[in-house]
Write a protein that binds this DNA or RNA. Structure first.
Length: 413
RNA sequence: GCGAUCGUAGCUCAGUUGGUUAGAGCGCCGGUUUGUGGUACCGGAGGUCGGGGGUUCGAGACCCCUCGAUCGCCCCA
């Protein structure tokens, strides 16, 4: 490679071969499952006005303050490449008058952008599948959304992943809990890690999942959300869990599972690989494979009416790591042109084979020996030989009926 | 933003305490053998050793800077 060949942008990836097949498998499976649950397909802009994210995520969050790809366009507007789906979908819901479709179930997928240090399972351009239910306040929506996620993971063949479930309560419960945590951790502030001392100011809930041993000593006695839940919030959570049980979605209570963003209420969840599972090994420390929650506070932050909603997103790259590589479609028929005079006949054959649904390739360059060598290396089930007089024989084991039918088919006009 | 490890051919890597024209396997191209199909053999192309400075008679190797990769921390899917 010449030194003046431009390199790829840090944190981006060129996906090819078995990984690309796995990527397609994830998207195709998601599309199939999403139809079963009647989620409607939607596409959204890759960039939005910066305020869409700044207002919904909160100016002080790490994502907004230091991880967004923001730029000024030629008209002087500040735009941002989407760092997540939810804010843009909320904006679309409000600006398009989609209240008329409420409760609206939407599914989408595509690239997202975050200026972060790349590491295992994290990229600056990454890809997610995403599902949201907007305008539904009932716990039934949470149940349906989670059932869909659970079925998707199973259909992807991902084993050893468990739904970790928590509730953050309604706005009042959440605030009271937050105050309780600040009070509790504030008393031992000096003994906390530097990171957690900072979290105490910015994001006290996050202290709960600190990995620092200095913090862990205080976690077991920390106030629990359950002590602050209103009757309504508790009833909501119980409806969700009983619904999951009825739908046989396995889950485990995760009292320290929280969300960094303020707009989350009630249900919060992540699908996390069990310790020691193959998926856990494959994912390293980026353990969460699918996560989401209820975000009843979001629409108002964008100037819309109070609108309840739940959603989740899953990183396609992480799903790929959990399911491993996928084979490309096997080659069924290799048309081997022994003599250049047979090229026209070979092209006729190829057209017929492919029209008949047969996976076919042509080999027509190099010496005769090279042609056979290269043809064999591609592992075709059958080789169709063509010489200067045309097609003359087929070799290989197994059923050839589809191929023979295609060979003999009338040439399409 | 912080830390650790690493960057040699298209790919995977070797390269002894610094010492002549930087190597191997695979892949690619050409050829020989073979029964016009997986074999074996012969030959060839392909590297300013990530980039830039420095130390030295001499740097792929040592030092500094920089870019990138990988794995952690923060944050998060």
């Amino acid at each position: 490679m010449s030194k003046n060949t431009p390199k790829a942008i840090r944190g981006t990836q060129d996906i090819f071969g078995a990984d690309a097949e796995a990527f397609a498998f994830v998207v195709e499976t998601f599309e199939r499952v999403r139809r079963l649950y009647r989620f409607r397909r939607a596409e959204f802009p890759v960039f939005e006005k910066t305020e869409v994210f700044a207002r919904s995520l909160g100016e002080t969050t790490d994502v907004v303050s230091k991880e967004m790809y923001s730029f000024e366009d030629r008209g002087g507007d500040s735009l941002t490449l989407r760092p997540e789906f939810t804010a843009g979908i909320a904006r679309a819901y409000l600006t398009n008058g989609w209240q008329q479709h409420a409760p609206l179930k939407v599914a989408t997928h595509g690239p997202l952008f975050r200026y972060e240090r790349p590491q295992k399972g994290r990229y600056r351009q990454f890809h997610q599948i995403d599902a949201e239910i907007i305008g539904a306040a009932e716990p039934q929506a949470d149940v349906e959304l989670l059932a869909m996620a659970d079925q998707l993971l199973r259909e992807l063949g991902i084993e050893g992943v468990t739904l970790h479930l928590n509730t953050l309560g309604d706005a009042d419960s959440r605030e009271a809990w937050r105050a309780g945590l600040i009070d509790y951790f504030g008393k031992v502030r000096g003994d906390l890690s530097e990171d957690s001392q900072e979290r105490l100011e910015k994001n006290p809930l996050r202290i709960l999942d600190s990995k620092d041993p200095r913090d862990k000593a205080f976690l077991s006695d920390a106030p629990k959300i359950d002590a602050y839940l209103s009757d309504e919030a508790l009833a909501f959570f119980e409806s969700v869990t009983s619904g999951l049980d009825a739908a046989s979605v396995k889950w485990t209570r995760a009292e320290s599972l929280v969300r960094g963003l303020d707009y989350y209420r009630h249900t919060a969840f992540e699908f996390i690989p069990d310790e020691g599972s193959a998926a856990a090994d494959a994912l390293g420390t980026q353990s969460t494979v699918l996560g989401g929650g209820r975000y009843d506070g979001l629409m108002e932050s964008l100037g819309g009416p109070a609108t309840p909603a739940v959603g989740w997103a899953a990183g396609i790259e992480r799903l790929i790591m959990s399911i491993g590589e996928r084979e490309e479609a096997p080659l069924e028929a290799m048309v081997l042109v022994e003599h250049d005079a047979g090229l026209a006949e070979a092209n006729r054959l190829l057209a017929n084979l492919r029209a008949g649904g047969v996976v076919a390739e042509i080999m027509a360059t190099g010496s005769l020996k090279k042609r056979y060598d290269k043809a064999v290396k591609q592992g075709p089930k059958h080789i169709l030989r063509v010489n200067e007089t045309g097609y003359y024989s087929i070799s290989g084991e197994g059923d050839t009926s589809r191929i023979v039918a295609a060979i003999n088919a009338e040439t399409s006009p």
